[in-house]
Design a protein around this nucleic acid. Sequence first.
DNA 1: CAGATACTTTGACCGAGATCAAGTGGAAGC
DNA 2: GCTTCCACTTGATCTCGGTCAAAGTATCTG
Lengths: 247, 247
Amino acid sequence: MTLKAVHEHSNCDDCPIRHRAVCAHCDKDELEELEDIKYYRSFEAGQTIIWSGDPMSFVGSVVSGIASLTQTMEDGRTQMVGLLLPSDFVGRPGRDCAPYDVVATTDLVMCCFRKKPFEEMMVTTPHIAQRLLQMTLDELDAAREWMLVLGRKTAREKIASLLSIIARRDASIHKSGMTGPIVFDLPLTREAMADYLGLTLETVSRQISALKKDQVISLEGKRHVTIPDMGRLMEEAGDDTDGGFLV
Amino acid sequence: MTLKAVHEHSNCDDCPIRHRAVCAHCDKDELEELEDIKYYRSFEAGQTIIWSGDPMSFVGSVVSGIASLTQTMEDGRTQMVGLLLPSDFVGRPGRDCAPYDVVATTDLVMCCFRKKPFEEMMVTTPHIAQRLLQMTLDELDAAREWMLVLGRKTAREKIASLLSIIARRDASIHKSGMTGPIVFDLPLTREAMADYLGLTLETVSRQISALKKDQVISLEGKRHVTIPDMGRLMEEAGDDTDGGFLV
DNA sequence: CAGATACTTTGACCGAGATCAAGTGGAAGC
DNA sequence: GCTTCCACTTGATCTCGGTCAAAGTATCTG
């Protein structure tokens, strides 16, 4: 199994790109012993998957739906520290306790591996560690990109940055090839957006209204967003137009 | 070479804990071919080591001094996204361009490896990828912890959080074993602190004065800090007293 | 020692975003 | 149809931290 081979194997429905390297049915012959340590779990919107500090018995990746990582202070202030879209990895091989809550933001399906056997597998199958390292480095870059958003951007820029990230990760962009308007449904409530951006939900609402008034975006209902000009949105986000968000 | 063996090998001056796993002279017999791809570089305070977007020909780790990772927007707003203390790893095996500036905050010595051979070595020596994965996961946790600081904490809490991180990573704490007052020199200017915390230097200065007035800290000169009660400082930071900052 | 430079402190004022409060709109249940 | 509920919007006001400005302090240089 080479990474190249993994990348070429791209039409696997519940086994998306960043998941493939650790997924059994993509490399049956080499990893078929996985079948008995791998299982699927479903969660309802709002359900907490893992509580911060709890022992974590599995690692896995998101198959469908959206999960979020959140940290909460004693007085209730919360900050979302990661958004997990399909194909994203969850878990920490080598550590027992979760450092933050993992919450299902929408209905969610995860593909899980029991942690112990997975860790053993990492030792015997070096490519897995290498693949996980790449994914973790990508997430680290995304987290650091987000630190700039949290630390230095205005409320308006924060909203534009979030919309731009969701737009880029959304399926529709792949089809349209980044030209023409981009359309998607917001998978987050105003409150969840506020928690991600370090704002209040009122400020989120006001800034979305302002972006709508200025025709940077248009809305049908509360959630269905159309972005007529992606370049314009990225200007509003304060990014140079070719900049590289990953999440 | 096992990780355990690596950990036991702890009296190696310019080869600190988190650096050891990839450092030649800790495991001469197994990795002696490293000698010709490894070299040291020195930098003066203020010098930029890598510019964002530049091709990166090496990876490495900090031997002495402090470096910082910073992101800058076109209009000049900057956010520090990481603080590199001795033993921290720098670089991205598998990616050519640096995603942010790396700047020497103090005079600095780095232990570098040419990137190509290092990447080849990662393939032939699986433990390196596994060790790097652990380190990267730790950094990811630290980055996410910092997102809470940037997004939700007040200026006073931000300062307390930064002091608490520096205190914990500082050598003196290891000696005193976390009881009694902790003493250290701030390795950052007020401006660098502001860039790390998403504040202005004026606000940093004011909050430090306030913490001094309230006897949470005391100062000799501008940089030499004494923390009489670490628990008190962590309350001010808004952390539960046993919480786990890493950086 | 005078002057220059870099870092820091402090004060006065202002504004972006938080807080508090009321109201809107749409979907679900009775 | 009416009520309830929830997510969202909008308005009025307040406040923390930003901005602009001035002055203090330590180090270095000639």
